[in-house]
Amino acid sequence: MSAIAVHCQNLVKIYATGNQKVTALNGINLDIAQGELMMLVGPSGCGKTTLISVIAGILDQDDGVCELFGQNILKMRSAEKLKFRAQNIGFVFQAFNLLPALNAMENVSVPLIINGVRRQTAERQAAAVLEQVGLGERRKSLPAELSGGQQQRVAIARALVHSPRLIVCDEPTSALDHESGRNVMTLLKDVALHKDRTLVIVTHDARIFEFADRMAKMDDGHIVNVSGSKPLHEAL
């Protein structure tokens, strides 16, 4: 039986701009199981990106609790939080966010280097993961020399290389055509997801909803509906 990977309870996040206050998260309650692929969906400005940022530990909530694998990130000291993030979380971004001056292998090796792995070892491991995502031949290519789909595969390899327990993806297919988007999702489902690793994906892209184990629909800072092929208790 799987455990809870992400536990959010009454999460509140308010952005203050001058005199204006915008409540981005307004009492979010959400549990995500280990080995589950959860999609966060909803209209623009509903709080998806804020929620994923809080879950990934790169944004502090104003109220409520967010636990990752039983640990409350908010209570961690800064250095602990960095280490936790470096070891346990992988990121896939809409705009890929690869470092343009580094080739594919060097880009993929970055999380390992952040974790203190020696460059040669990191690049060896990065090359192996690139093989896994079908880009072994392109490991020396710069991002600019790769197609959008290939760049996203490099980004997935980067998110996987240090074996994180949670991968957060922000609109991973929205910059890709239909076929590339499906390939990326297939890759994420086949290679990234397993019983010890959880995927949280923010998306607008209805074409990929079918890949989700569950979907949380958000609106105006709330989760209005959680639906999916598997209810949480089954996922657990």
């Binding site: 990934a56 790169i58 250095a79 960095l82 280490k83 936790f84 993030r85 470096a86 070891q87 979380i89 990121f91 971004f93 966010n97 470092l99 970055v110 999380p111 952040i114 974790n115």
Partner: peptide
């Protein structure tokens, strides 16, 4: 990105 991935 580096900061998000855990760079101090």
């Amino acid at each position: 990105v580096l900061k998000a991935m855990g760079t101090s």
